[in-house]
Simulated scan of single mutants.
Amino acid sequence: MNKLIVGVLGGVGVLQAANAFANVSEGPPDYSGITGLYYTLIALILGFGVYDTFFKKS
């Protein structure tokens, strides 16, 4: 089960990173791709904190 979760989260991270690096445009900077990557990273960190605090067995 843990390998499945790590695989899914890793896949989401890779897709977000690919989207962030693919958004190269001319003109003013477009931060839409990197913003999604940052939000994904923050969500993973907060999700791990909630898991570690409430659901992890001692």
Rank of each mutant, 00 (worst) to 15 (best):
P28T: 09
L44P: 07
V14W: 12
V14N: 01
S32C: 05
D30H: 10
I45F: 03
T40A: 11
G33V: 00
K56S: 13
I5H: 07
G7R: 03
F21G: 14
F54L: 09
G49S: 01
L46V: 07
A43G: 07
A18F: 12
I34S: 11
F55T: 08
M1H: 03
F54C: 13
Y39P: 01
G36E: 10
L4S: 12
T35C: 13
G36A: 12
F21P: 11
V50L: 02
F21L: 14
Y38M: 07
N19H: 01
G13Y: 00
N23T: 10
L41C: 11
T53V: 00
S58Y: 01
S58T: 06
G49K: 03
V50Q: 09
S32L: 01
G13P: 04
V12R: 07
I5A: 11
A20C: 07
I45K: 04
A43K: 08
I5V: 10
N23G: 15
A18P: 09
G33H: 02
G11Y: 05
Q16N: 12
F48E: 09
A20F: 05
Q16D: 04
T40P: 02
A18I: 15
V8K: 00
L46I: 01
G13Q: 04
F55W: 13
V8L: 00
K56V: 04
N2I: 03
V12M: 05
L37T: 06
V8Q: 05
Q16F: 09
E26F: 05
G10Q: 06
G10H: 03
G27I: 00
A43D: 06
L9H: 02
L46A: 14
G27F: 03
T35E: 15
L46Q: 04
F55M: 02
Q16T: 14
D30E: 14
L37D: 02
Y39G: 03
A20Y: 01
Q16L: 04
G10W: 08
L44N: 07
V50F: 10
L37N: 07
K56G: 05
L46G: 15
N23C: 14
S58Q: 12
G27T: 05
G7W: 03
V8N: 04
Q16C: 05
I42K: 09
Y39M: 09
F48W: 15
L15Q: 03
Y38I: 13
L46H: 09
F21N: 12
